[in-house]
């Protein structure tokens, strides 16, 4: 694994995608590929070859849970670290997401100035 991971960010809200893109690329200097849905992520995942998955939980169509499960079925993503972003900050929700394979959970609203550092800290723990 390199020092700075390439991130695949899946988020249905275009505004949040925009903020996250700035936070990760401009503030954090990370390489990011973005998808608006789980289906799109499945299509592009192979070509993008990300080191880290950053997934929104509540999305229309495929939820974050379903997207991760579908990606895990692909050999190259069976072990790829995944971080969920959720507006539900309860401990029970965080635990549930950890149980289905999340390395960690970032709660919304996130701070764009620290988002990249937070993700890197989780990445380095992997």
């Amino acid at each position: 694994m390199g020092d700075l991971p390439k991130i695949l960010h899946v988020e249905d809200d275009p505004d949040i995608r925009e903020i996250a893109l700035m936070a990760l690329e401009i503030v954090g200097g990370l390489e990011v590929a973005q998808c608006a849905s789980g289906a799109e992520a499945l299509e592009r995942a192979a070509t993008e070859a990300p080191d880290l998955l950053l997934l929104d939980v509540m999305m229309p169509g495929m939820s974050g849970d379903e997207t991760l499960a579908a990606l895990r079925r692909l050999d190259q993503f069976a072990e790829t670290p995944a971080i969920f972003m959720t507006a539900k900050a309860q401990q029970s929700e965080v635990e549930r997401l950890r149980q289905i394979g999340a390395r960690d959970v970032i709660t919304k609203p996130f701070d764009p100035m620290t988002l990249a550092d937070e993700i890197l800290a989780i990445w380095r723990r992997c």
């Binding site: 505004d15 700035m22 936070a23 503030v27 507006a87 919304k108 609203p109 701070d111 100035m113």
Partner: peptide, 15 residues
Amino acid sequence: TSIKGAMKLVASGAT
């Protein structure tokens, strides 16, 4: 999330 994120980015001078 968007409002705070956008303003924070502007306030930080990132934009």
